[in-house]
Amino acid sequence: MSDTILTLTGVQADIAQYHILQGVDLAVPRGAVTMLLGRNGVGKTTTLRTIMGHLVARQGVIGFDGMDITARATSARARLGIGYVPENMGIFSDLTVEENMVLAAVSGRLLAERRDRIFAAFPPLRTFWTSDAGTLSGGQKQMLSIARAMAEDRKLYLIDEPTKGLAPAIISTMVAALRELKDGGASILLVEQNFAVARALGDHAAVMDDGRIVWSGEMSELADDAGLQERLMGLSMEGK
């Protein structure tokens, strides 16, 4: 078994007539958290969507767990063991929280033990278990979206901005849940704008600009080098 769970090699993808991903090279190590960072609009979400198969890679190869999945259908990729938390959360608002979770357990039942673990991480989901998911607050929806990815063990989690628009109290709930996932040995590719969260969770980091990966290395290296951050992302930890 290779120690890389996901590799993108020269991946290009278009949205309508726009050339968005311009040759993404990325390796996501097994059993660690890899941060995908970069300014707004550089193609992070598009990269995740292309990995998931929502967008077709026009060029390049996507390898997952030793297989070439470039031409696979989205559902097949999911069944190979990729859990996806999209940027817009993808909640089924007409279904109850429970029904959202039941659907997420693709291979069968949502185990009680698993459900209790999710309740422990995200208590509001227990409170609103039988409510329509559409009535949840933004933060609760985000919890549900992550909980859905955790409904079964996945080989890889793709998580797009789990702290977007959340109050600090809920951000720490998210971080704790993701850390627990990480401590359980999960492989995670995490897009995050909140640098404090990135630093707290990330083992590795890849920085995108203009549809390409422009830097990759250890998260600690990036976190300790304000000049590098400034150059790559136009931000620095100073004052954060």
């Binding site: 198969g53 559902s75 993808g90 089924f92 608002s93 007409d94 039941v102 659907l103 693709v106």
Partner: peptide, 24 residues
């Protein structure tokens, strides 16, 4: 039924249904 859930979820967001592993 599960198939019913898939249909209702698919009406709202087919892409997400596929991302969970169902062949819409």
């Amino acid at each position: 039924t599960r198939i019913g859930l898939i249909v209702r979820a698919g009406v709202e967001n087919g892409e997400m249904v596929e991302a969970l592993g169902y062949r819409l």
